[in-house]
Design a protein around this nucleic acid. Structure first.
Lengths: 242, 242
DNA sequence: CTACCAATCTGGTAGGACCAGATCAAGGCG
DNA sequence: CGCCTTGATCTGGTCCTACCAGATTGGTAG
């Protein structure tokens, strides 16, 4: 969202989050005044207020009239949307968050895939086949698979006929766009990914819950491990870069 | 968040969402200009811009410079945070969303409870016992159980040692604060809720995964059914009122 | 009918102003 | 010396005006 177009507002959001982290502020701590922040960041008070409106809506900060701006949560305890924002802004996650995201994804996707097996319609299958085709095409010419991968996984989840589940998994997928992008640099991995996805569709078409959950578990787990290995090689380069 | 203090910004958010729904705008449609909206809503352009910053961050709208404001998603396809916001603002959900939330909660909480059985620490148990005490006290004097219920459930999830899972379930819990509030009006239900919660803790302490998942499934399911029954009796009063 | 140009509209940003409650320090009173 | 009143100051909430530059659009000239 914000990553695409760099506005003063998104700058202010980023700088505010950086300020909070840099000064190691924790729950209840007070931030500088809007006027102060606008000076620090070199933007108008209006832009700062827009940023604070966003942080407020995300329950990261709380603006107390005539008093000040207070941190509502530890930055690490903020909502998923805030983590997605963090990823969008190019701020790194710590290793624990990364592990937790992977685990949560596996748990939720397993359940979603199970439901998808039970409820998938022919339309869902058609959609998946279509996505598989474009996926294969992208694998062939070596384009950016990251977005298409997300789309595919979410399409499978959508086959569960539970839209809340889709929305639940969306941020979990979006948070890992950073890894995903580097992950798909390898041609071998791209190929394997396509094979896995094909297996997904087969299992879902056959309504084979056991295989489906097994597949998703293995798929996400091995992907996470590969990414971890990549991260260790890649030394200190920040995760979640967009 | 916004429900507590009624600001011009939150008004603008609410009115914008109402505008979208009232005019049946769908993905890609263009909203009136900021200046126009500020006139309609009777607030400053600044307040409108704050509201749009929030809606932008939630991926509901997209502001294209020198062009206009466009709807990014159908209102029904927006993120979970947007649904929480919707609940906060007192806007109703449709029945499907309600069912989906319940199902998603059950799926995720079952998994979280399972992990909690495996990983709960003594500190977690202590925390749960403490929450159970305050819960019992509130049941006794008939106070508002809604918030405490959320806190308890999230504390159990937290015992899974997966903070992302907590953040995933938080919006699912928050979205149902409306029902919850009416739900706990019945003294019998309060009492039964306490018993259920006690059983949770016992199962988690014993690391009894099977019982724990069974309990949470039954707990949430029956609660959802009770709420549905209430809603049918309560005729057309809107859900999710805060 | 087409091509081009200018008026208009749009979001992005800036800067100033006022309000009223919160905060805090100085001063006065006991 | 300590407590309480009081006033200056700070804060977020809101409003207003203004300018910029690209997008849009309408009309005019060819």
């Amino acid at each position: 969202m914000f990553a695409a177009v760099s506005t003063e507002t998104s700058d202010a959001v980023r700088k505010t989050l950086e300020f909070v982290r840099h000064h190691r502020l924790s729950k209840g701590d007070r931030l500088p005044s809007e006027r102060d922040l606008s000076e620090r960041f070199g933007v108008t008070r209006g832009s700062v207020r827009e940023a604070l409106a966003v942080l407020d809506a995300m329950r990261i900060t709380e603006r107390k009239p005539k008093s000040g701006i207070y941190l509502r949560n530890e930055l690490e305890d903020s909502g998923l949307d805030a983590l997605v924002l963090q990823a969008d802004l190019g701020l790194p996650f710590d290793a624990q968050v990364t592990r937790d995201v992977t685990e949560a994804r596996i748990l939720c996707e397993e359940q979603a895939f199970r439901l998808a097996c039970q409820r998938r319609t022919d339309a869902d299958l058609a959609k998946l086949d279509q996505l598989l085709d474009t996926y294969a095409a992208l694998v062939a010419n070596g384009s950016n698979l990251a977005d298409e991968d997300v789309a595919f996984h979410l399409a499978v989840v959508a086959a569960s006929q539970n839209r809340v589940l889709v929305r639940t998994l969306t941020p979990l997928m979006l948070m890992s766009t950073g890894w995903r992008r580097r992950y798909f640099a390898s041609a071998e991995i791209r190929q394997r990914s396509l094979i896995d996805h094909r297996a997904f569709v087969v299992a879902i078409e056959a309504r084979d819950e056991a295989t489906a959950t097994m597949l998703v578990h293995r798929h996400v787990q091995t992907a996470a491990e590969d990414v971890r290995a990549l991260a260790e090689q890649g030394a200190t380069d920040s995760d979640s870069k967009d």
